[in-house]
Every structure is written in structure tokens, then in C-alpha cells.
Design a protein around this nucleic acid. Structure first.
Lengths: 254, 254
DNA sequence: CGCACTATTGATATTTTTCAAAGGAAGTGG
DNA sequence: CCACTTCCTTTGAAAAATATCAATAGTGCG
């Protein structure tokens, strides 16, 4: 804890990047915008940066903005009275944070890694949503995708074994990373784990010990190799998919 | 039901009910419509009826319509290659079925009880969505609600005990029923279970034996009484909420 | 009445959690 | 530079929860 940690996210505004040069331009809520729309967004957007571990919002508190994740990873989580927690959303670059029309956050939002958000104050964004069908349509589509992803997660939490859960998680990370790179997940791919074992456990509905044990088991069986604690090499991606228990074809064509 | 069983859903068009008299008028995707919108919907809608157990759609198959559930209960479920299944959505009256912009169903859709759908062919409905911000806005709001509900379910599947799962399920059914009646869940309420133990197990990520045992345990402990196999009386609703592990205040004000 | 389906209950097996200890890696201050 | 602290991770042993296998009991219907 030197000086950096005492800087609040509010005071930390990185330089504006023009939307046209944005790394998430073709995946985020602004993906279907045309030049005029982008000008309007450019005028109202601002950046916020969080360090790994920082709280972005607390359940029950007002959140004055909605945002796109530009870089880094954020987690949405719910906590029960006795302290059990479940992560209910993992926001990767291009994902949308916040609910238009409801300023009070339903979840705790945490920066799982260093995080850069492209923010919009609620009011202007909601006005824009009302007036611009390209943006509202895109947001509907993204929300429907989020719902499908949540439903896939229901299957994981309800029916998969601990080993399958770990494998599924790695597959998802690899697929998301590939999608952002506009590529296919390859053999020999290296997957970064932007989460501690504990955060993985919260996401997978397991304990951190079980996560650790199952990662060790996948390593023993040659499904993965560890490159440090936070990076995983996958020699045979199809093998990993098989271990995840999912259809090898990955479901619907998108 | 004598002759009815041989009639396929397609051939079975109940008489049209004017939207203005519809029991789900103020909760469904059409909730925010004005008179002119309703005329347009009235002109294109048609009803379909399914019997308990019938398949509405299969994962991977085209679905030519989207729909609102008018009466009855439908389930969305996913099945793994080895047969494990997880229900990922429970559609109660006023819920929306189908994804605009994607004709291929991602899930198996089953009528869990006798079911009445108010259907719209895809093309006209998608045109309407594009041209009518009241409908598209309402659909976005409903989808965000679905996403919140799915996330609450993630907590249930990931972190709750079998007993808490059963209690939570009963609470949800009671709340949904009360919402449709525009009332609060009361003490002494009777909750209809429109599902077999097996369907409940599929929804809760349990086996049917565990469901049966936990229902018996809740009965033994006086939390519920069984009225027949498919109806449950709740003498003390707060007690049930406590057993569900949720905050007693039920989260956000809506 | 008896069949088919659904639900309950019991005994055992399996999986995952819990409790406990210890091993690394990174940063801090002497 | 090194000892020290802290955080994260791994591993082991025992306990708990739930699944599985198996038998029995209601329920509704032809």
C-alpha cells in the first residue's frame, strides 16, 4: 500500500481514446453504432480505472453510471447472510455493466484484475437508448446473450462434476479470448486465469480446495499444464472440451 | 379430456380473446402497449394449447413463433450427452418464450402443465420490435428481469443446501403467484406445484429422491403441509423464507 | 382389479466439504 | 541481501451432504 491505492477511481481519468480506435469497438454495446452515434457517445463517455480487488459497486447502492469493460475482468457476486457467496457474472472486455432503468445495483461488483471501464452517466445513456434503436437493439441482443450464458452456467452448477466445472471454465475463457481476437481456440493455447482459486471457486460453486485439487488432477492427467499459478497451457483443446462434458460442436452457430 | 388427446397443438386454436381482456395484459411483453399497438398485435396473434408433458420445441430445431405464456407452466431444459438434464427456465403466465432474431431454439421446451400460449409469427413480431420502441423496451426490461432471475438461480444451484433449494422454490412459486394476483404472499397460502418431483429435481439440480426427502423433512418440521401430492400449504410464510436462506426482505423493491 | 406412473423411504456409495497443516511466491523493512 | 510476513496455493484426513441402488406404497385410469 503505497500512494497509488489511495487514489480513488473517480480521480483517475485516463486519456480519452476515440471510439473508432477502441479495442472493443465491434463487440460492445456500441458495436452497431454509426458515425453520428459514435460522436454522441464520444462526447459523453469517460473512463474509470480500478485495481485488482477494488470494489466497483455494492449490492443495494446506487451506481451513477453504466459501462463497458474495455480491459480487465470484473465479477458480479451475491452474498448470503451467513457469508456464502456465489459469483453470478464474469464481465470480460466488451461486456456491459449496469442495468438501464435501475440505478441500484443488485450485485456486488468487484475488479478481479486491473480494470478499465468506459462509462456513461445513467441519464444521457438512457435518453440515448430511448432515441436510438441501434443501441437499444444491440443492448437487447447482448442481454439475450448474457441470459443464454447464465443458462449454460445453470447447467454447470446444477449438474456438472467438479472436474467438469473446471474444464468448462477453461473452455469458456479460451473461447472468449478467441472471440475477442476473432480467432478459434487452438491447440497449445495458453489461457490466463485472471482469478484467484477462491474467485474461481465462487464462480464454480465449489470450495477453493476442490478447485485446487481438480486443477492438480487435470494436470496429472495431462489435460493441462501449469505455467506459473495463473496461466494454463492446453495441449489438446478438444480433450479439454471432452472433459467439460459439453457437446464437442459447442452448440449453436453464431 | 376425451377426444382432445389426439388433437395436435397446431390444429387447436381456442377462440381469440381480445388483448384488452387478457389475464396477462399488464405483465406480458404487451404490457406497455397503447390501443393502436394492441390492434396490431390482436391482428397477428394466435393461440396454441399444449397438454402437460407435450414438447413445444426441441433444442436445435426451428421455432416459427415467439409467444407469451397465458396460462400453465413451461420448462426450458438442457440435456448433456449422457442424459443429465438441468431445467434452465420456468415460464409462468406472462413470461415470454423464444428469442427474437434467432429462430433455432437453444433449449428443449416442454409443457409442464396444460399450457396456453399467445403466439406471434417471428417475422411480423420482429418487424414490430423494430418499429415500436414500447414493445422493444418492454422486452428489454423483461429480459433483464429474466437475467436477474437466472442469477438468483445461480446462487441457489451453486451455494444452497437441498433443503434451502426446496424452500426457495416454494417461495418463488408463491411470489410469482402473488405478483400475478397483484397481492402479497400470505400466511396460510396454498402453493400449487405444477411439476412432478422429477421436474422439480431437474430445476433444483437434485435427484428426485432428495427432493422427496427434503419435502418430507419440511413437512415433519411443520414448515409446510401437503394437500395431496401437488399442493403445499404454508402456515408461516416468513418461516419458509428463513428456510430458503434468503434475506427476509426479498432484495430490491420492485 | 391391475397396470402405469409417481412418490416415499431405506441402505449404501460417492462426491465434495471441512478442518488442518504446510509449501511457495512476492513484497517489506532491517 | 536476507529474514519475515502475508497471501495464495497445495495436499491430507475426516466429516457431511447428496447420489445411487433398491424396495415399497400411493394414485389414477382403463
Amino acid at each position: 500500500m503505497t500512494q497509488v491505492k489511495s487514489i480513488t477511481p473517480e480521480t483517475c481519468h485516463p486519456m480519452q481514446v476515440p471510439c473508432a480506435d477502441c479495442p472493443i469497438r465491434y463487440r460492445a454495446v456500441c458495436a452497431t453504432c454509426e458515425a453520428g452515434d459514435l460522436d454522441r457517445l464520444d462526447a459523453t463517455k469517460y473512463y474509470r480505472r480500478y485495481q485488482a480487488g477494488q470494489t466497483v459497486a455494492l449490492a443495494g447502492e446506487r451506481m451513477e453510471f453504466v459501462a463497458s469493460v474495455v480491459t480487465g475482468v470484473a465479477g458480479l457476486s451475491q452474498t448470503m447472510e451467513d457469508g456464502r457467496t456465489q459469483m453470478v457474472g464474469l464481465l470480460l472486455p466488451s461486456d456491459f455493466l449496469g442495468r438501464p432503468g435501475r440505478a441500484v445495483s443488485a450485485y456486488d461488483v468487484t475488479a478481479l484484475s486491473d480494470l478499465l471501464l468506459c462509462c456513461f452517466r445513467r441519464k444521457p445513456f438512457e435518453d440515448l437508448l430511448r432515441s436510438n434503436p441501434r443501441i437499444s437493439g444491440r443492448l437487447l441482443d447482448m442481454t439475450l446473450d448474457d441470459l443464454d450464458a447464465a443458462r449454460e452456467w445453470l447447467l454447470l452448477l446444477g449438474r456438472k462434476s467438479a472436474r467438469e466445472k473446471i474444464a468448462s471454465f477453461l473452455v469458456i475463457l479460451a473461447r472468449r479470448h478467441a472471440a475477442l481476437m476473432q480467432a478459434e481456440p487452438e491447440n497449445g493455447i495458453e489461457i490466463e486465469l485472471p482469478l484467484t482459486r477462491e474467485a474461481m471457486a465462487d464462480y464454480l460453486g465449489l470450495t477453493l480446495e476442490t478447485v485446487s485439487r481438480q486443477i492438480s488432477a487435470l494436470k496429472r492427467d495431462g489435460v493441462i499444464r501449469l505455467v506459473g499459478k495463473r496461466q494454463v497451457a492446453v495441449p489438446d483443446f478438444n480433450r479439454l472440451v471432452t472433459e467439460s462434458g459439453d457437446d464437442s460442436d459447442g452448440g449453436l452457430p453464431i
